[in-house]
Design a protein around this nucleic acid. Structure first.
Length: 505
RNA sequence: GGGCGCGUAGCUCAAUGGUAGAGCAGUGGCCUUUUAAGCCAUUGGUUCAGGGUUCGAGCCCCUGCGCGCUCACCA
């Protein structure tokens, strides 16, 4: 542990405290109130005839200190907020005042007891009679007040370097209350998603994260190895195939909220591990799921934000149902002038994309990938208000059921908000023979060594053979939803410890 | 992985190729109701790392590291 000059000074203060008989890291604390409870108790007593003095003990972090000789003001911060502390030498004695002055710093955790008062300027304040250290902070918090130039310009700069904020998230949280708020919102979002599904009879389950065969999405997996079993394992890229096994088992409504892992590029909307919600609902189809989706997102927003509307990157988004519904083929005709029905194979579609749109196409690109590319380039960025794109080509949806009478298209939709894909759902394919065919098709569409190819999952097929009820399935990127609801431009802002490259120290 | 940008005190930021600075925090003073208090004084730097050009480099060039943006990738 290497200490800089400021830290060495604090270390000396810590030692001085200990020498004086005050333990800098005592084992126990005993606050009686939070700052908020203390304020409320005092304000209530103020309304009474002959109010008894309100005595409280607070515990929290010193966030400001104004030493003024024989008195001192400070602010203590706890989980509920901040409250001013008022120290007077007549109350605590010259000796304690000196200890406060010489051994206490911003960032220290302290406990303070006394009587609630209101200062001359009207601020509810704890007049301190006793206080002691709860935990001495050796490193100063990376917070800074700002200069006031010619009586104007008040920037309250604080820790801002994104790298430090992510690598030392504890410091970021300690100093930036709006960052703490993001994660409070995040917790509330997950809670309300759960409530919504629980209320509708869904069973929350947990399925394997370590899987012998990965599937349910097209993505490169992380691999690992179990020593005793001498077996290669993959970190899951989705929950889908396990949750559908549970439909076979008789659980008609199941969901899981958990972590997926994809060994792919990192961007503002991609993180190697991310939180996914998937649910499966027997006897529902994708249209029912669509309705449930807009109701679920709307409910979550109302419960968490208190509104169906929020601002994302300067634009107001309204999640009230019904959301806009756009047929994928029609959407592409409008935005690109290309009717994918007229180009039934990859070669002809690639041709028209190159000539009409002037976009270079990698030779050998599958038709589904071409369509998905068009979707991403021409439709997705414009979908600011909540929108469902529906009816997808079959070859990029090997687990979705055909539209009756249309072997080329499947009953699938994706939901978009703020130009970001939020969720993905379809009527689940439950015909085991057809499913096997799709797996084989996928195997052909990708190179043998391409980890994105869908590996054949024989056990999943066996499960389908026992009979899976018709069902609608759904997946939601929880981090992305939180990103939208908190108006952050990057997933890293809504993930507590986003992955950064390791640096040698 | 490609392109562009950034990296200076604990924090936020300055500094034509010519003595590395400011505010805040810190340290030493004064101050018994302050409001991101005020006043006086003052400490603090491997300018990300390593090379190069130059009389002289925080600044120009090269390499590396990290971060950001962006493209590619991403059912």
């Amino acid at each position: 542990m290497e200490l800089n000059e400021l830290e060495k000074i604090r270390l000396q203060k810590m030692e001085r405290l200990r020498a004086s008989g005050e333990e800098p890291y005592p084992t126990r604390a005993n606050p009686t109130h939070t700052t908020q409870e203390a304020r409320e108790a005092f304000e209530q007593s103020e309304g009474q005839e002959n109010p008894a003095p309100v005595q409280v003990t607070l515990a929290g972090r010193l966030r400001s200190m104004r030493l003024m000789g024989k008195i001192a003001f400070a602010h203590l911060e706890d989980r509920a907020g901040r409250l001013q502390l008022f120290f007077r030498v007549n109350e605590i004695g010259e000796e304690r005042m000196q200890v406060l002055r010489e051994c206490y710093d911003l960032g220290d955790f302290i406990q303070a007891s006394g009587t609630m008062v209101r200062t001359r300027t009207g601020e509810v304040t704890l007049q301190v009679s006793q206080f002691h250290m709860l935990a001495k902070a050796l490193t100063p918090l990376p917070a800074a007040k700002d200069e006031v130039v010619d009586g104007q310009v008040v920037r309250h700069a604080t820790l801002a370097d994104p790298e430090v904020r992510y690598r030392q998230r504890y410091a970021d949280l300690a100093v930036n209350p709006e960052v703490r708020e993001i994660f409070q919102i995040r917790a509330a979002v997950v809670r309300e998603l759960r409530n919504f599904l629980d209320e509708r009879g869904f069973l929350e389950v947990e399925t394997p994260i370590l899987q012998p065969i990965y599937g349910g999405a097209a993505a490169r997996p992380f691999t690992t190895y179990h020593n005793q079993l001498k077996q290669n394992l993959f970190l899951r890229i989705s929950f889908e195939l396990y949750l559908k096994r549970l439909l076979v088992g008789g659980f008609e409504r199941v969901y899981e909220i958990g972590r997926d892992f994809r060994n792919e590029g990192i961007s503002f909307k991609h993180n190697p591990e991310f939180t996914q919600l998937e649910f499966y609902m027997a006897y529902a189809d994708y249209l029912k799921v669509m309705e449930l989706t807009e109701e679920m997102i709307c409910t979550v927003c109302e419960k968490v934000l208190g509104s169906r509307k929020f601002t994302y990157q300067g634009r107001e988004v309204d999640v009230s149902p019904p959301w806009q519904r756009v047929d994928l083929r029609q959407g592409l005709i409008e935005k690109t002038g290309i009717d994918i029905l007229e180009y039934p194979d990859a070669e002809s579609l690639a041709e028209v994309v190159q000539t009409r749109l002037g976009k270079p196409v990698k030779p050998g690109t599958a038709r589904g990938k071409l369509i998905d590319g068009l979707l991403g380039d021409y439709l997705e960025p414009a979908l600011i208000q909540p929108t469902f794109l529906y009816n997808y080509p079959r070859d990029i949806s090997p687990l979705a059921k055909n539209i009756p009478g249309n072997p080329e298209m499947v009953e699938r939709f994706e939901g978009f908000i703020g130009g970001v894909e939020l969720c993905n759902a379809f009527t689940e394919l439950n015909d085991p023979v057809e499913q096997e065919k799709r797996f084989l098709e996928m195997g052909r569409a990708y190179e043998a060594e391409d980890e994105q190819r869908h590996p054949m999952d024989e056990d999943f097929l066996r499960a389908l053979c026992y009979g899976m009820p018709p069902a609608g399935g759904f997946g939601l990127g929880v981090d992305r939803l939180v990103m939208l609801m908190t108006d952050r431009h990057s997933l890293r802002e809504v993930i507590l410890f986003p992955h950064l490259r390791q640096i040698d120290e």
